[in-house]
Design a protein around this nucleic acid. Sequence first.
RNA 1: UGAGUUUGCCAGGCAGUCGCUUCGUUAAACGAAGAGGAAAGUCCGGGCUCCGAAGAGCAGAGUGCCAGGUAAUACCUGGGGGGCGUGAGCCUACGGAAAGUGCAGCAGAAAGUGUACCGCCAGCCUGGUAAGUUCAGGAAGGUAAGGGUGAAAAGGUGCGGUAAGAGCGCACCGCGCGACUGGUAACAGCUCGUGGCGAUGGUAAACCCCACUCGGAGCAAGACCAAAUAGAAAUCUAAUAGUGCGGCUCGUGCUGGAUUUGGGUAGGUUGCUUGAGCCUGUUGGUGACGACUGGCCUAGAUGAAUGACUGUCCAUGACAGAACCCGGCUUAUCGGCAAACUCUUUCU
RNA 2: GGCGCGAUAGCAAAGCGGUUAUGCACUGGAUUGCAAAUCCACGUAGGCCGGUUCGACUCCGGCUCGCGCCU
Length: 127
Amino acid sequence: MRNSPDELTPDFRFPKSTRLLTATDYSDVFDAVDFRISSHHFLLLVKQSPTDRSRLGLIIAKKHVKLAVQRNRLKRLSRESFRTNNATFPNFDLVLLAKKGAGTRSNNQCVKELEFIWRKFKNRAKT
RNA sequence: UGAGUUUGCCAGGCAGUCGCUUCGUUAAACGAAGAGGAAAGUCCGGGCUCCGAAGAGCAGAGUGCCAGGUAAUACCUGGGGGGCGUGAGCCUACGGAAAGUGCAGCAGAAAGUGUACCGCCAGCCUGGUAAGUUCAGGAAGGUAAGGGUGAAAAGGUGCGGUAAGAGCGCACCGCGCGACUGGUAACAGCUCGUGGCGAUGGUAAACCCCACUCGGAGCAAGACCAAAUAGAAAUCUAAUAGUGCGGCUCGUGCUGGAUUUGGGUAGGUUGCUUGAGCCUGUUGGUGACGACUGGCCUAGAUGAAUGACUGUCCAUGACAGAACCCGGCUUAUCGGCAAACUCUUUCU
RNA sequence: GGCGCGAUAGCAAAGCGGUUAUGCACUGGAUUGCAAAUCCACGUAGGCCGGUUCGACUCCGGCUCGCGCCU
């Protein structure tokens, strides 16, 4: 189900090739982090990607966000935010972790915080 | 009008844009489907899978008025007993204490083959007195009516009776036992007989007894593919033996087994959704539920899919997210709707 | 997802159907020239809600929170 969407210009898709899938993908990022960016409720780990695109992985721990509904909401919001901004990203593997208290934030607050993180990430990635 | 009881249902809708998962058609696009009443807690019960088969006994655990429903249950329905409420209704671990063992702090005379602290009592002895039926004291008794303690003190009321009292006797009520009647039964009775009732106190969510039920583990079960383990060394032991069957024994399977050393792996597919399934109608039953006919296919992910934005309408949206699947229970929950019924106020 | 365990004072940690030990810490006193050590004394407890019982920290249910194991 590869459909090679790289050439179609404004790419707002979110197929499986833009995600971290296996445990080895995650441990590769954790073993060699290039730099990290944190805000009040999120932490982003960044590593140069072996593929030709940027990939996202999410870690929303049950310890930090207790209810399954809120964990799912955070995952959807961060995927949505990543999807809309992905076209402008350089090729990096990203792992987004939720910190304690993230589950009680509203949708708007989370979206703003994520966009702040993406901006900082792009600035650091240039250097 | 107000207050309430029970049962059932709904859980934001519609349109557009950009995305996600599965399936299908065709050849990169289109179409279809896509979380809950609790998906939750994992408290019960099953299916399914493995443990050779799932057998017997012991241990252990659970359930506990009766009858029925069901695949099964600790659930549900109907009925009985007890309690609460003016009522509609609600609650109810509700077998056995005359098989045995234990427990009851403090208080109290006494807490279990019952007891005599205060009190009451004729007679006896002593004192007082002229004397005594009166008064005071004493010893040995009688007594369970009265007082006091406690959560609990062993039938109740009335009359008789007595030195004082007492089921000591009687009547009514209560209780036990046995009949009879009604009911499938639990149980009930303005029924009959019988027992004076210190027989037989309480506690079994104390041990226990009785009846019934339960083999263990869980989809991270299990199966397949690829790769790897394979292999080796040392020690011990062998048919009245060793070991597996996840408490033990019987029973039964296997023949080499057990332990240690060192070395090494953890990716994919499947199980995975057609099921004690849902809907309509007819019908049996007081009901839970059952039978028959017709129709429908309704999530299946695996770093894990339902979202974001915009517009609009309303009641302004609570609790909350499937992970093998069902039946219940429990807990969380903004509100709204419908039906039946009860009480209250006023009017007729 | 499944299975199991626990909650007692500021901290640690026992036992039990009948007023919850003990140690460290805290506070006060004694001792000392002052302190430490030592001695004496004081106060502070059953996660929450129900049920059984005369009486529950204990027995039985239901919630809440924490921890461990299976990959």
